[in-house]
């Protein structure tokens, strides 16, 4: 390194000297650029032009999956594995929210009762609650807000006797609008929880 520190400035100095003494059209320092795909940062040597694509996804690897839930925890994801989605069953019972709010309105009581009854009548069925937002929040804020809306409905259903173990939540943030418009009418439709009934995979 020491040698570099001495030689490099000298080379530059020479270049500068020549440049200032009439050789302006003949720059002396040539900087080679290795490869066309440089490493973005630090170490890696870069390599070819194309980054390798994603490998196929194994069904379940990775560390620390599905630890034992407890308290107000969400139900373990694997207990919903293979269940069949029935989006039509409770499509009429979507509940809606005020702007930037996860508070469940009194006017949604009837919808929540219908959802609770559907689950009470089919002991093997479970529920997926999809929380959604309008487009006016930032992306990750809305992803959290959508989850909060789904969890708020889970809590309300628990008060109506539905075990939280039968409920799975998913937030789509602002990624799944019911109405892709950009006005209050569309936004009001998009601030919502959709209820998807889940049937056991045997279909019984």
């Amino acid at each position: 390194m020491k040698l570099n520190q001495i030689v490099f400035p000298l080379a530059l100095a020479l270049a500068a000297t020549l440049a200032t003494t009439g050789c302006k059209h003949q720059p002396m320092k040539v900087t080679p650029i290795p490869g066309s795909q440089a490493a973005p940062v630090g170490d890696n040597g870069g390599g070819g032009n194309t980054l390798p694509g994603a490998g196929t996804l194994p069904p379940d690897n990775g560390a620390g999956m599905n630890t034992t839930p407890g308290g107000g925890n969400t139900a373990a994801l694997d207990t919903f594995e293979g269940m069949v989605k029935d989006p039509a069953a409770l499509a009429a019972n979507t509940i809606h929210f005020a702007f930037d709010s996860a508070a469940i309105k009194k006017s949604e009581d009837a919808n929540l009762s219908t959802v609770a009854q559907a689950l009470a009548g089919n002991a093997n069925d479970k529920l997926l609650i999809e929380g959604n937002c309008d487009e006016r929040g930032t992306e990750e804020y809305n992803r959290a807000l959508g989850e909060r809306r789904a969890l708020a409905a889970r809590e309300a259903l628990a008060k109506l006797g539905v075990s939280p173990d039968r409920i799975r939540t998913i937030s789509y943030g602002k990624d799944k609008p019911a109405d892709p418009g950009h006005d209050e009418s569309a936004w009001a439709k998009n601030r919502r929880d959709d209820f998807i009934l889940l049937h056991p995979k045997t279909g019984v």
Binding site: G53, L57, G62, M65, T67, L77, R143, L151, R168
Partner: peptide, 12 residues
């Protein structure tokens, strides 16, 4: 190109 799940708990 390899990838691994790091967090895949129920919910967000």
């Amino acid at each position: 190109g390899q990838r691994r799940k790091i967090a895949a708990y129920s919910g967000l």
